[in-house]
Write a protein that binds this DNA or RNA. Structure first.
Length: 578
RNA sequence: GCCCUCGUAGCUCAGGGGAUAGAGCACAGGAUUCCUAAUCCUGGUGCCGCAGGUUCGAUUCCUGCCGAGGGCACCA
């Protein structure tokens, strides 16, 4: 089974990042690489890269150092020497590097690296100076990414599931941008097809009802109350103008009114949720421009389309899908898939380096056929990454709220927003990997206490602001610069833990971008806030010792900045006070 | 039936070829003369679904099975 479903994130060269200010891990990696090359060339081998299976990881145990490398273990066979011996040679070279306080060979041949505390401390001022840009990098090398998400049909208000997709997409956009990608966010409006007529007809029938007419409202029509609300608006605006008109003669009006109304509501919801788009792309354009026919024709010329039982079929099986797909039905109507092929082709021709689609998990069966289309059109299937977002179950007071779109009983994004607020909603949506189920606990999201992770993080930021404000009033650092600060005074375990975690941010952003996983930022934030709260409980920032106060204020200032940067990637606010 | 995703602490979930598998919640106890107690500290539980395989090493990768969810339209 080849990987036409997405799986892991992007493939990116991560060897050449000299444009970026290196974080500690990168510096260690480079030292390791140099040592390894020195070792191999001494043996007569030339230009050996670090093995692909090499890992520079963060050990779980502190006694195993800040970083541990398995380099000696994975290169033992190709060098023909025992792992521990290789490790010892590498360790000896590394010991000369002031970056390391200690280098140890352990277990079967791990190289445990202990970064010199002095380096961590010097690093702090560097992070501070990067300010709002700390965490950004050039890993994306300006690759243009088109991020398509939400794309809900304009047939009803957004529900919580869309909300999750919106949060993931918007946050991912921010993260990719920070990692050096050029991002465009797009909403694809499915404003063509049968559903539009059904929508208009639903409103028409409700309109009739408002005048006391008995109507037979089919159960496959849109049931929600919002349909009646639209009908009421029409009554206010046009009174009984359509009352005695047959539906066929005024359906277009009802469709247009409904779509306009619902679309405006969707935009408003997204706006209030802090989610914006660069493009609102109407499916109508795909139809009206003749792009679908053109795409079918070209595929046909390449022999990927055939006719059977009066319908036109795309030979998807030739490109890894399990069955061929109809693009034009025997009644002459184009399928949704045909439009989607054309739409993706349109995207591909707009010349992006990467397309990312964020879909509800119920569409996962759709991935192979769209990828098949992309391949048939002559593009690499890697060009498209599809992120599947699992459903959200809402919990309140320990009970699950039932939802069913069919019956019109769904909880809307609006309701959640009104109830828990933008920040809590966004954070909750981003605390899980997008393809795993999410239990959204409304009761928890509304709590203003430590059990609510949103407040936990925001509170850390507010606390820091308060400290810095106090310092300002005491006139301790009027220039807002830390020239001459003596960071050697940051010598406790809490200091080092915080310093290390601050440094890790850039790496987290990069990995989060490459893996297309915004939730990593949430975890990072929770951890950083935890380290700070712990620090706060054990140390005073402002004290009698002016030098120490100065150093700790630098730490506070930097921590606050990183919290703000990270929260910004989630689209969650960083309040100055709470 | 076929395909996809998932199975980790009481609950919700991270992690992931590497050394003793984590967090939050829940539960219990404690901490405030002092920068925001929306905080902190202390308590412990895991056949990492089951069975094989790959290798120096598997909870992680592969295969099969069991269980949960989703998908398999000339629907959108």
């Amino acid at each position: 089974m080849s990987s036409h479903h997405n799986g892991a994130g992007l493939k990116i060269k991560i060897n050449d990042r000299l444009k970026d200010i290196l974080n500690m891990r990168d510096r260690a990696l480079r030292a390791l690489g140099d040592a390894f090359r020195g070792l191999t060339s001494a043996k007569g081998a030339h230009e050996i890269q670090l093995p692909a299976s090499h890992q520079l990881m963060q050990p779980k145990e502190r006694i195993h150092g800040d970083l541990a490398s398995n380099l000696a273990l994975v290169s033992a066979s190709c060098l023909g020497r025992p792992p521990r011996e290789i490790a010892a040679s590498i360790a000896e070279v590394l010991r000369a590097d002031p970056l390391f306080e200690r280098v140890e060979v352990a277990g079967p041949g791990f190289i445990n690296l202990f970064i010199s505390p002095r380096c961590w401390r010097e690093n702090l001022l560097e992070i501070y100076r990067q300010g709002a840009s700390f965490g950004t990098c050039q890993a994306g090398e300006g690759t243009k990414v088109l991020l398509e998400f939400v794309s809900a049909n304009p047939t009803g208000p957004l529900h919580v599931g869309h909300g999750r997709g919106a949060a993931v997409g918007d946050s991912l956009g921010r993260i990719l941008k920070a990692a050096g990608f050029e991002v465009e966010k797009e909403y694809y409006i499915n404003d063509v097809g049968n559903q539009m007529n059904t929508l208009g007809a639903s409103v028409y029938l409700r309109y009739q009802e408002l005048f006391g007419r008995k109507v037979d409202f089919p159960k496959e029509y849109y049931q929600g109350d919002y349909i009646t609300d639209i009908a009421k608006d029409i009554v206010s605006a046009k009174a009984d103008a359509f009352l005695d008109k047959p539906m066929g003669s005024c359906l277009d009006f009802f469709v247009k009114t409904a779509v306009d109304d619902i679309s405006a509501g969707i935009k408003k919801d997204l706006d209030d949720f802090g989610v914006s788009f660069d493009n609102w792309f109407s499916e109508r354009i795909i139809h009206d421009s003749g792009l679908i026919e053109k795409t079918i024709r070209e595929l046909s010329e390449m022999g990927h389309i055939y006719e059977e039982d009066g319908a036109l079929w795309f030979r998807a099986t030739a490109f890894g899908d399990e069955k061929d797909r109809v693009v034009r039905r025997s009644n002459g109507v184009l399928t949704y898939f045909a439009a989607d092929m054309a739409y993706h082709r349109h995207k591909l021709e707009r010349d992006y380096g990467l397309l990312v689609d964020i879909w509800g998990a119920d569409h996962h069966g759709y991935v192979p056929r769209v990828k098949a289309a992309i391949k048939a059109l002559g593009y690499a299937e890697d060009k498209l990454k599809v992120l599947l977002v699992q459903f959200v179950s809402l919990m309140e007071d320990g009970k699950t709220k039932s939802m069913s779109t069919r019956s019109g009983e769904f909880v809307t994004l609006r309701e959640v927003l009104d109830e828990v607020g933008r920040d809590a909603a966004r954070f909750m949506f981003l605390t899980r990997k997008s393809d795993s189920h999410l239990d959204f606990d409304l009761t928890l999201a509304k709590k203003e206490g430590q059990e609510n992770p949103v407040y936990y993080v925001q509170y850390a930021h507010a606390r820091l602001c308060s400290i810095l404000k106090n310092a300002e009033e005491l006139d301790i650092n009027p220039a807002k610069s830390y020239d001459g600060v003596n960071t050697d005074l940051l010598a406790t375990q809490e200091d080092l833990d915080l310093l290390k975690h601050l440094d890790a941010f850039q790496q987290v952003v990069r990995e989060s971008a490459v893996a297309l996983e915004p939730h990593r930022i949430s975890y990072y934030l929770t951890e950083l806030a935890g380290l700070f709260h712990n620090y706060y409980a054990k140390n005073r920032f402002i004290g009698e010792d002016r030098g120490l106060t100065f150093a700790r204020l630098l730490l506070a200032d930097t921590t606050r900045q990183v919290l703000e940067n990270a929260l910004g990637l989630l689209g969650v606010s960083a309040p100055k006070q709470m």
